[in-house]
Amino acid sequence: MRPLFSQTSVAAVRLMIAATFSVAVMFIDVRFDALNGVRQVVKTMLWPVEQLAALPSVTVGHIGNWAVGHSRLVERLESLALENERLRTEQLKLQTLRAENSELRRLLSVRERVNERLLQAQIQRLSNDPFVHRATINRGQLAGVVVGQPVLSADGLVGQVVMVYPHASDVLLMTDSTHQLPVQVTRTRVRSIAMGVGRLDQLELRNLPDTVDIVIGDLIETSGLGGRFQPGIPVAYVTEVIRSPGQPFVRVVAEPVAPLSRLSLLMVDVSERGGS
């Protein structure tokens, strides 16, 4: 095998070539998505390694469940039964509302919204890179997941599928600094773009005019613009409204409704067709 850097001048030339090659690859990957095939093949090859790496935590989880006392299990069962009763009552109300909504849509000649088909999935791992907010879930191509489908939790929106492998998928969380989401304030219908800032507990709404009607505690939901997400999915609560004197725009900070750092179970909305 040839030595890596035998002479300083040769070394510098090799470094330059390697750096140019790397930057070119980065550019092609980010701008044209032309290397997704490579990513899929490598991720599929890494699948056994990831399963093996997750084995200790899965085993500890199983042992933890097994060690939970009988009285605590009974207590949990009772609380789940109560929750189930409540949800069944809520569902009865929802059915009435759905029928009513359907009738109103028919009268207004608005197309019926496609029924949601949610696929349950579990987070296998979050990226260990602090600047990348991606999660790998245990459902992939074989389960009907495609790129672009929204991913939800019981509380609200989590993100969207960005890569699909046979047995798994990568979900880009909405807090990733490369993610942008068309949203609206539920109370006033003011539209904006929610941008990830690289923190799991924060989103930002930028470039809103200084006179905008928005207050702390307002709920932000998807606006449906862009066609990727259905309108009305809860996204975040406004936690801070920063108005700088002399500035024409206000900066709004919001906290995601879904607790992204503690998530385990997710739902992939497989009724959406997705898209790159």
């Binding site: 890596l4 070394a11 470094l15 090659f21 550019f27 490579v38 990513r39 991720k43 890494l46 990226s127």
Partner: peptide
């Protein structure tokens, strides 16, 4: 595989690795 495992753009780790290898080999 590092880029894929960390979820970064392909090529980012190649750039870092090349620089590290150059400096540390010297």
């Amino acid at each position: 595989p590092m880029d894929v495992a960390y979820g970064t753009a392909l090529g980012l780790h190649a750039l870092i690795f090349a620089l590290l290898a150059y400096l540390l080999t010297l």
